[in-house]
Design a protein around this nucleic acid. Sequence first.
DNA 1: TATCTATTCAATTATTTTATTGAATAGTTG
DNA 2: CAACTATTCAATAAAATAATTGAATAGATA
Lengths: 220, 220
Amino acid sequence: MDKRIFKDKAYSILATMIKAMANPHRLEIVDLLGQGEKTVEEIANETSMSIANTSQHLQVLKAANLVEIRREGNFIHYKLAHEEIYISWQTLRELGLKHIAEMERLVKDFREKRNSLEALRMDELLTKMKSKNVVVLDVRPTSEYENGHIPGAVNIPIEDLATQLRKLPKNKEYVAYCRGPFCVFADDAVQLLIQKGFKAKRLEEGYPDWKIKFQTESIS
Amino acid sequence: MDKRIFKDKAYSILATMIKAMANPHRLEIVDLLGQGEKTVEEIANETSMSIANTSQHLQVLKAANLVEIRREGNFIHYKLAHEEIYISWQTLRELGLKHIAEMERLVKDFREKRNSLEALRMDELLTKMKSKNVVVLDVRPTSEYENGHIPGAVNIPIEDLATQLRKLPKNKEYVAYCRGPFCVFADDAVQLLIQKGFKAKRLEEGYPDWKIKFQTESIS
DNA sequence: TATCTATTCAATTATTTTATTGAATAGTTG
DNA sequence: CAACTATTCAATAAAATAATTGAATAGATA
């Protein structure tokens, strides 16, 4: 085979795969599926898209072998085909967060309004966790928490947090985490906690990042 | 700011960046620029594209802040804006090489014809290099070698290899490397070396991968 | 200043991508 | 088996992407 043809094919195959990711809705779907499998309807609700449009985008991801399906009755559950797909997304996400000025501004503006700008990185949280005075809050839906979480974290889904607040001691430091840097549950949690007089910060990253970094598959 | 608007903007910003990569020609350009800066004409020649088309694609990369320029007389030198951009490309490339069956077939077919299918990974080469009986050949152009290379590697650009062959001892093992997995210089080198009775394999990865993995900035 | 060189720009056309709509399908439930 | 549910499919129109061509520009040289 000619060298040029080889190269054209190699880069085309990769470009096809990357094109399947290169869409805001599909990035959000990949990010969401980092939490585990979801049905089409769940994905549509989480991403504020129509069912039909969600399905079309899922077909694109499936055609690129980025997601796999499992049928269960009428429901079709989609999940990422490999963990490396989330890692690629993570790499691209970090590239954007680090180098695109517009991205930095966007996140800063959003978090400043919620007092969640001063976020902890994973290493800092790990250090803090040894000091015993910190409570790690997983504010994702319980199903996602059960699917894996940071060891020692307490699950209070964001919609239950307001009612659960009075059970929480005020002499602790709280660190809230959720799905990832673009997940707003942790920002909402920090806003609420600080408003009520608690000391709280968010974790910059989400559970999938923790899992990849420490590979402590704690489903306990 | 509304949560949905925040998310839409965040994922859109990233999708815009990823779209700038999601094209076979632009991937080849990013891959090439991993070797260091190149002029528009050099890039056009290496990628078999017209100057105008190359320029257009470079504008796309520049608009996405993936590349930077340096003017020198009539020439404009393009380079990657950050090392993380190459790392992102590397991550996506490995994802494709590992999980796309068509990609595996393509590489296998191409290398089988050149006896270069049995490639060494970087760790294996590192081990072999300690045994002293191996010669590491950098078959890239000399300018790229001078810009950084594997410590101890000998530079014989692929077009000089045929004439330099008789100076090489036959009792050594040869490992040829070049720009990356899709660079064919190393495959050509292995084909030639084996044809002439040498023991030779290619390194799977290229110099940028070595540099990132070991960060031994040897420009000596 | 005129000419040359490297690169960019603008206009055009063909192709691909995307969202919307409503119909079709596969599987379940009464 | 009729009705229902979750999902996919097909058709359409609008928007974005890509390659080609030739003209325009910025800087160097004669």
